[in-house]
C-alpha cells in the first residue's frame, strides 16, 4: 500500500505563542504528515510563525470561529485529495506523538472517524468541574442517541478518512461543532472509534471556552443536538 497522504489541520486564532511549539513537535514526531494552519484572522504573529517555519497556511477573510476554520481545512484536504485529515488544536494540548495511533484504525478500515478520548481509560486527566460535567452529560446523551459508547464527545483531536473529509467539507456546524459533528456522522452511518488520549494542559493563554461561555455552550449544543436529530431522523436525508 502506498504511503497515505495525511494532512494535519491546525485552526489558529491568536495562537502565536503556542503554535511554534506545536509545529516543531509535529515535524519531529510525524514528519510524514503535511501541515495546514488555518489562521482565522489572528491579530498576532500567527502567520509569521508559520512563514518562519515554512508551513503552509490559509488566512480567512473574516473571522469564522472554530467550526468554519476547521471546515476550511477539510475543504482544502478534500480539494487536494488527502487520504486522512487530522484536526489538532493550536494550543499544544494534543500530543503529536499519538497521531500514528489515531490514524491506525483508519488505515485498517475499522473506522471513518477516530477520536482521541480523555476518558476511555482513566488517565488522571482532570478538567475543571463544570466542563467535566458538561462533557460527561453530552457524551452520555450522544451515546444514547447513537446506541454506541462514546466517552469523549468534546475532544478536538480527531482523524478522518477521505470519505469523512468530503462529508465534513460540505456539512460542518459553525459555533460549537464538536458534539454536532459526532452526531451527524454517527447518524449518517459513519463508523466512529475512540482511542485513549493523553492530553496535556494548555501551554499558554486561555482556552477558547471560558466559564461564562460554558452556559452558552451547553445551551447551543443542546439546540444543535435537537436540530441534528430533527434533520436526520425526520427528513430522510
Amino acid at each position: 500500500m502506498p504511503e497515505p497522504k495525511v494532512l494535519l489541520i491546525i485552526p489558529a486564532y491568536n495562537e502565536a505563542k503556542n503554535l511554534g511549539g506545536v509545529i516543531d513537535e509535529i515535524k519531529k514526531e510525524v514528519p510524514f504528515c503535511d501541515i495546514l494552519v488555518v489562521n482565522d484572522c489572528s491579530t498576532d504573529a500567527t502567520t509569521a510563525v508559520c512563514a518562519g517555519r515554512g508551513v503552509p497556511y490559509i488566512s480567512t477573510i473574516f473571522n469564522l470561529g472554530i467550526g468554519g476554520a476547521v471546515q476550511t481545512g477539510y475543504k482544502y484536504a478534500a480539494a487536494r485529495g488527502y487520504d486522512i485529515a487530522i484536526q489538532v488544536d493550536g494550543d499544544g494540548q494534543h500530543p503529536a506523538g499519538q497521531i500514528p495511533q489515531l490514524i491506525a484504525p483508519l488505515l485498517a478500515g475499522e473506522a471513518d472517524l477516530v477520536t482521541g478520548s480523555r476518558y476511555l481509560v482513566p488517565m488522571g486527566y482532570k478538567l475543571q468541574y463544570p466542563r467535566f460535567i458538561g462533557t460527561k452529560l453530552f457524551s452520555l446523551l450522544t451515546s444514547a442517541i447513537l446506541g454506541e459508547k462514546i466517552t469523549d464527545v468534546t475532544s478536538g483531536f480527531r482523524a478522518a478518512n477521505a470519505r469523512t473529509v468530503s462529508f465534513l467539507s460540505v456539512e460542518y456546524p459553525e459555533d460549537f461543532p464538536d458534539v454536532e459533528t459526532i452526531l451527524l456522522l454517527g447518524l449518517s452511518g459513519y463508523k466512529l472509534k475512540e482511542i485513549p488520549l493523553h492530553m496535556r494542559p494548555r501551554a499558554s493563554g486561555r482556552s477558547s471556552i471560558n466559564f461564562q461561555k460554558s452556559v452558552v455552550y451547553c445551551f447551543k449544543t443542546l439546540v444543535s443536538v435537537l436540530s441534528v436529530l430533527l434533520r436526520k431522523r425526520f427528513s430522510g436525508t
Binding site: V38, P56, I58, T60, I61, L64, Q71, T72, K75
Partner: peptide, 18 residues
C-alpha cells in the same frame, strides 16, 4: 453563503500565493 465564499477565497488565495 458568506462563510462558503470566505473559505473558497481563503483557499484560492493560498493556491495563488503558491
Amino acid at each position: 453563503h458568506a462563510k462558503d465564499l470566505n473559505q473558497s477565497l481563503a483557499i484560492l488565495n493560498n493556491e495563488l500565493a503558491a
